[in-house]
Design a protein around this nucleic acid. Structure first.
Lengths: 211, 211
DNA sequence: TGTACATCAGTGAACGCGCGTTCACTGATGTAC
DNA sequence: TGTACATCAGTGAACGCGCGTTCACTGATGTAC
């Protein structure tokens, strides 16, 4: 039953993708190797042809989750202030809240990641730093305020708010947590820069900030 | 080996206390019934004389963690604005960061609580609401801003910041996350009210806000 | 290009292990007289 | 107040179960000639 190299690589990739979603949706400890393999349409025995251990898969899957989000952020940053504002607002929506498996890994696995091993925490730290640095470029700050500090504050707030919006069992309170955080983002990201104002080509096609 | 009723009640209480700390320190799924009983100096077999299931213990232990924090908050609130500011500042310190077992359960178990059963999430929701309502009384707000909204924003920020300060593996970044959040709290809690100004007895003995 | 052999992705049974839970038993406590 | 018996907190072995991991095997793919 040997498979071609191309097929093998595709299978490995599929396992990581499925793991990335499953670990966020159901938690790291609660998700078994056999479950992931079954979702990939395989039996668990073949797992170790691709990975040394569950730990290795978790590390790769978490890195993939992180890279997805960073890539989206960098793309938004390149499009300008409006896109960046939209990107951050989208983070604290009911859509993101209800799609835990497809969303931010820090919010989905926060307290488990705190106890994860060195490599995973190192990856997460690098990712967070990248995000903070990129976000800082778009922040509005008071005269005595560091833009990087503002970015740290807003980003940690977004992660905490999304987590709490999932934790509370009252939909009204949950929506309110999200709405309040969207308002804070709108207040903190500086209004469309001169650069963005100079080429407002995409403004009309954007959804309004508060949807 | 039957024990007196008083002793039985004390043992039960001790198990819940130990569980409350262990579940926060090591996580809910990762902490076993046998471990908790061993820490209480007992064998695991006796567990079911006190509880119907691990789930029941987890529910009670989480409620205890929550009530501890709420009690401290209410005590600070009664002492006035300065005590409340100090209480909130203490939340985002390296002391709290490094004492996960003795600290806030939402930060310690956030992503696990999201997946916990209805009763636990209901308890957590009630606790969060209580905290928000109490904190709102001390918030400084803009003319068009609801104080409750400000409280929601600051509290979710505190939880997210503490979680991320534990998650990152760079001590400098971790300390910075905490310091930034302390500054936001200082900016958001209204400066000592007329009531607090009227009795500044405890101001001298307080630690400075940024320690 | 065609043949012979080595490789190795995937299968499915099995491994040891720790989990939550159950149970027969012990013996000090609480209760009935 | 003293005695006889029922209760039940705690022990430690055992239960079934699912976990991560290993392994003998299969058979299509890749490689050497």
């Amino acid at each position: 039953m040997k498979k071609s190299k191309a097929e093998t690589a595709k299978t490995r990739q599929r396992i990581v993708e499925i793991a990335s979603e499953a670990l966020r949706a159901r938690g790291i400890e609660a998700t078994g190797v056999a479950q992931i393999m079954a979702e990939a349409g395989l039996t668990h025995g073949g797992f170790y042809r691709h990975f040394d251990s569950k730990e290795q898969l978790v590390t790769e899957a978490m890195a993939m989750s992180r890279n997805d989000f960073i890539a989206k952020t960098l793309a938004a940053a390149q499009q300008g202030t409006e896109a960046m504002l939209q990107h951050f607002q989208d983070y604290v929506t009911s859509d993101h809240r209800d799609d835990i498996g497809g969303g931010c890994a820090w919010a989905a696995n926060g307290s488990e990641l705190v106890r994860a091993d060195a490599k995973i925490r190192q990856n997460a730290t690098e990712g967070f730093r990248t995000l903070v640095e990129k976000a800082a470029l778009f922040m509005k700050s008071q005269p005595d305020e560091d833009k990087t500090d503002v970015a740290i504050s807003v980003l940690t707030n977004m992660i905490g708010a999304l987590t709490m919006s999932r934790l509370v069992d009252d939909p009204v309170l949950s929506d309110r947590i999200l709405a309040v955080t969207r308002k804070r983002i709108a207040r903190t990201i500086r209004p469309s820069s001169s650069k963005a104002a100079a080429r407002p080509r995409k403004l009309a096609s954007k959804r309004p900030a508060n949807h």
